[in-house]
Amino acid sequence: MTLDSVDRRIVQATQAGLPLVTEPYAQVAATLGLTESEVIARLAAMQDRGVIRRIALAPNHYALGMTANGMSVWDVDDDRISELGTQIGTLPFVTHCYQRPRALPEWPYNLFAMLHGESRSEVQEKQAQVAAILGNACRGHDILYSTRILKKTGLRLRDD
């Protein structure tokens, strides 16, 4: 575990969101009995260590009109996946792009890229752009549309 008990309390105090007040870190500090500078220093250290990926907002794609989202999956030549995955990851309509293990025989795909669009036909156009980049390094592909959100809570540290 790379978090000490103070870090952990800071994580718990902020995992639902940063307070929308002029001095949010001072408010977090006050609830934890810490100083503002300690909270800022610890958040900065956690960010440097990669425990915090970033302090940022997460847009709701659906509310913003991106009502079609497809998890596109690709069977990409292992020798080229790093180079090609990096290229796919920079496309503005791709939100999550990962290499994952295949699960043969039923699952031959090793590159996952989430594609967002206002309609399935727009998502399909974007899928074609990805296919063009992958070219003959791709042996097969599929796309899985989400039809229902069954749960969405994000990470929660247990309070223990």
Binding site: M1, T2, L3, V11, T14, Q15, A16, G17, L18, L20, L43, M46, R49, G50, V51, I52, R53, R54, I55, A56, L57, A58, P59, N60, A63, L64, K152, G154, L155, L157
Partner: peptide, 15 residues
């Protein structure tokens, strides 16, 4: 329009 605003934690980095 936004689902969350605040720190995004990496579970693997937290152990």
């Amino acid at each position: 329009a936004i689902t969350r605003f605040g720190p995004f934690f990496d579970a693997a980095e937290m152990g």
